[in-house]
């Protein structure tokens, strides 16, 4: 499903990702675990094509994202969803416009039809009656849910989550994680979760990769990763 080979990224002449090789299988929940500054977010942004890799290749659903043309990229974007750490909702748009943004921009569906789809998507993340609200009126947890609803609107095959619980209180974090698990089950998605939260790796992952100083230290099941004794898992276990 996702195949990353020899991925290397430099930012301002500093090597941020160093020769990363990962294969993520269809239907898997794959967690990238690392401390702040380890290169997790850069990794995720490179995989989804927001940052250009200096070397290596990233193949998602059979398409090499560094060589893809505009039409194929659009197809690929339809197959993937991204939930940002900051939710990244568009301030100037209402909630239904945020959720239905992809459809508003890339389809000829009427506003009514898109609104209906946005409502369904919002319902699936447990939100109701907020279609015409503006993002500034929502709490952090609700924004995160709207971000997930936006990622879900195309029924993607892969969802990328960047620190899904960052900045949320423990109760809200727990509810967001339950939602992630529910979506994974219902939509049968392949999930790639970047986090520093051991709880996510422990509870939800099929496999975990520890990223440290831009390199993949180890990849395996949670139990296998714990056995390596890497400080990030042994410290907090």
């Amino acid at each position: 499903m996702i195949n990353i080979k020899n991925l290397t990224v430099f930012i301002k002449n500093k090597k941020i990702l160093d020769d990363i090789n990962i294969h993520i299988n269809k239907g898997e929940t794959f967690v990238i675990l690392g401390e702040s500054g380890a290169g997790k977010t850069i990794f995720l942004k490179t995989v989804i094509g927001l940052i250009k890799a200096d070397a290596g290749e990233i193949i998602i659903c059979g398409a090499n994202i560094s060589q893809i043309d505009e039409n194929k990229l659009l197809d690929l974007r339809q197959k993937t969803g991204m939930v940002f750490q900051s939710s990244a909702l568009f301030d100037s748009l209402t909630i239904w416009e945020n959720v239905g943004f992809f459809l508003l921009e890339h389809t000829n569906l009427s506003d009514g039809e898109i609104r209906e789809k946005a409502e369904k998507s919002l319902n699936s993340v447990g939100l109701k009656d907020i279609l015409d609200e503006m993002p500034e009126h929502l709490s952090g947890g609700m924004k995160k849910r709207v971000g997930i609803a936006r990622a879900l609107i195309n029924h993607p095959e892969i969802i990328f989550y960047d620190e899904p619980t960052a900045g949320l209180d423990p109760v809200t974090s727990e509810s967001i994680l339950s939602l992630v698990a529910k979506i994974h089950k219902e939509y049968k998605t392949t999930d790639v979760i970047v986090t520093h939260d051991l709880g996510i790796a422990k509870k939800f992952s099929d496999r975990v990769a520890i990223i440290d100083d831009g390199r993949i230290f180890t990849v395996g099941t949670w139990e296998e990763v714990v056995k390596t004794g890497h400080p990030i898992v042994s410290q907090k276990e």
Binding site: K45, I48, G49, L50, L73, L74, R77, Q78, T80, M82, F84, Q85, S86, A88, L89, F90, D91, F101, F102, E105, H106, R150
Partner: peptide
Amino acid sequence: GSMKITEQIDALEVLAV
């Protein structure tokens, strides 16, 4: 600028815009 630092620009790209 605030769209940039709150990842809204990244979100546009992810949504193929």
